[in-house]
Amino acid sequence: MDAAFITDWIDEITRLVAGEREHLTALDAAIGDADHGANLDRGFAAVRAALSARPPGTPGDALVLLGGTLIRKVGGASGPLYGTFFRQAGKSLGDSPEVSPAELAAALTDGLAAVRALGSAEQGDKTMVDALTPAVRALEQALQDGAGRRKAFDAAARAAEEGARATVPLRARKGRASYLGERSMGHLDPGAASSALIMRALHISASGSR
């Protein structure tokens, strides 16, 4: 997979986020401050602009540019967290012009570790970590089990979607939703929902069709 593959992935995330903007904001309105959809939409629009201004040469470049732009343009909790996720993943990839699915999986694992370090959220705290953790684990596992990249990405997306759904009954312990205490229960975490979109976008772009 080359830099173009990553920019395709980013395009796909951008599309999904734009389409789900209202939904993500509505999720955030229920237990947060009603800006998650607007935040990501603004961020990915800026990423698009950054990518066409300075087309990346390697997958690592692309992810570092993505992450850095999110950090610089989104704000809020999700900006630094997603920014760190992609930026760390990009750094882990180094400067190879082509990377394997297993290398991408390892890089995303590193990205997730950086997110956990930055936000100190554990799985079960009702955050994006609840979707990203099973997703990255499923991706590693599927590839280890010999799955092709399309199938492995699908497994990751499914795991993220399931992880997101599993946040519904949880009581939030990180981020704004934690202020609600028990009243956060019964709601889907917006960051977990957007993480599932990100993983689904990976699968869609690997499938070469929407």
Partner: peptide, 11 residues
């Protein structure tokens, strides 16, 4: 000042 209810960015 950040966007409405969104913290400013590091820049």
């Amino acid at each position: 000042p950040g966007e409405i209810f969104t913290s400013p960015v590091p820049d």
